[in-house]
Design a protein around this nucleic acid. Sequence first.
DNA 1: TAATATTTTGTTACCGATAACACGCAGTTA
DNA 2: TAACTGCGTGTTATCGGTAACAAAATATTA
Lengths: 316, 316
Amino acid sequence: MVTTLEDIAKAAHVSKMTVSRAINHPEQVRDELKINIFKVMHQLDYRPNVAAKALVRNRTQIIKFFILEDIDITEPYYMKLMVGLAERLAKQQYSLQLMTDRHLDIGGSDGYLITGMRAKDHEWLSRLELPFVTFGENRWHFNFVDTNNELGTQMATQYAFSRHYEHIIFIGMAVQEPYELSREKGYTHVMQAQGMVPEIKRFNNHSRIAMHYIQTQLATIPANTCFVCASDRLAFGVEKGILEVTGSVGNNYGVIGFDGVFLDQVATPKLTTIEQPMLDLGTRCADMLLAKINHPEQSLEDCLLKPRLKLGGSTR
Amino acid sequence: MVTTLEDIAKAAHVSKMTVSRAINHPEQVRDELKINIFKVMHQLDYRPNVAAKALVRNRTQIIKFFILEDIDITEPYYMKLMVGLAERLAKQQYSLQLMTDRHLDIGGSDGYLITGMRAKDHEWLSRLELPFVTFGENRWHFNFVDTNNELGTQMATQYAFSRHYEHIIFIGMAVQEPYELSREKGYTHVMQAQGMVPEIKRFNNHSRIAMHYIQTQLATIPANTCFVCASDRLAFGVEKGILEVTGSVGNNYGVIGFDGVFLDQVATPKLTTIEQPMLDLGTRCADMLLAKINHPEQSLEDCLLKPRLKLGGSTR
DNA sequence: TAATATTTTGTTACCGATAACACGCAGTTA
DNA sequence: TAACTGCGTGTTATCGGTAACAAAATATTA
């Protein structure tokens, strides 16, 4: 059977209000009682009824997770982000609803996590009436959680430099989004610090396009060059191109990616890449969102997590 | 403001019980009243309070989605499965909790969807006390939803045959799981029907291993062979191997994969593959699970959906 | 010690829905 | 016409919690 507050109350010889307080406002209950109450709760394996709590507090205990990108080309890393998010939310008895472009119902939740946001989404996001957090930097002061993109490419560029590549070229994504700009900045910053000349190419984020670029242009690029890429997709294409043209990768031409989820493992050789801490990022999203829901008045710091350099075979 | 049953009731000059009935047992309410009630509901944009409903019906309106595989190597297709599932569940005011190996809490939900099940999981699954559905065939009569695996490899093999490949080799996964056996069966079946000799190799499901096999063995395999693979991962490796050894793929040696999510797109050339209808599968999982929850006494048919042959450049 | 302040605990009402029962009002039947 | 069906609708109680208030117990003060 299911144990309720009432059951605990009887067993502990107090009113159920006291039990409720022991849980939610423990400072208002004498230690003696509390200890006993918690003992009983434990014995009877008490699990609070989420629906009842939600009803009386006028909450839904639901978070909507928006994926604004086309789901067909969606990056696999959302999966891990969601695992991190869901795990933390479940601890606070929240559950999830997954929303896609096809299905954009607002309301019926306590808050939103927004992923895959682009410039065009600013309009409706600014109208939202519930607390939300975006996964990904943005220029509108919406609270966000993201990898420290700038630091990531700094690490990549620095590493390329430390491996004695004489030229370092940045392969970016042709989008004017903050995360891309930050990645470019990280690269540029280290290049200038090292007294090297930055060189940036930009393509749509598809491996084929990057591969084609390498196939056609590698001949004009001096050996001893490392390509620092803004995504693993681009890096994947670059690596393939280099392999095809020169027969090997790493020594004459190196590649470093960015993301570290799935694609870097599938590449041959595995990509050296900047790994985003997706699970942690998900957890942080949850924390931040819950904070906004429970303390709407407090303003929050955005959250930038440090990525990790993951060595593969695509660099020397 | 939020509209409740009470508000509708007042505006429609009936009791809230009548409104509730109009929603849940429409046959018990006169048409005249119903029409008016629905009109008012629409005007006032009524959204039922999920928590209240859950409380009184002693339900949670939550489904737990279990991913039993290691999340680090999880196939990207779970994402699409979840989208399909979540979308259908949301319509019935259910939301999701994502459970992974790290976090296997039972209870606090109305049912489970189990993915990534392996033989070893039979033990605890058989003890579960709530309705559940597994994504993936199984040998224990747990209700499941899956792609018609046998049909899939039949289609692949048939297609290879129709493209005049003289030899067709099956590259399987070295697991004794029903879905793998079904895939082998589909292949064998068509081979025998065509009077050809089946030849099956099995490897762990990693592209590198398949690639290595091709690199070392392709010389011993006659030209005009098509490799029908049990996964896109394997096909991906096979394609790479063929490309490396012979410089081109499709004509002398063809490759057909199985899954059609993400990896087939990333391959160069894109893989010809058997595409699983992941969104539909997700929807079906939801339907089946809801049916089990709402009518526990009825026994259900398992569900096998037809896959689709998706042509890429890895076959002629 | 009486009066007052401060904890600590209990009581009541309510959140928004639904099941079970009660009731009123046709149309049948005797 | 009285008793009997049924259908359609309203009334009441309830699910499991929590806020707001009331009351009791204890501590502090004069």
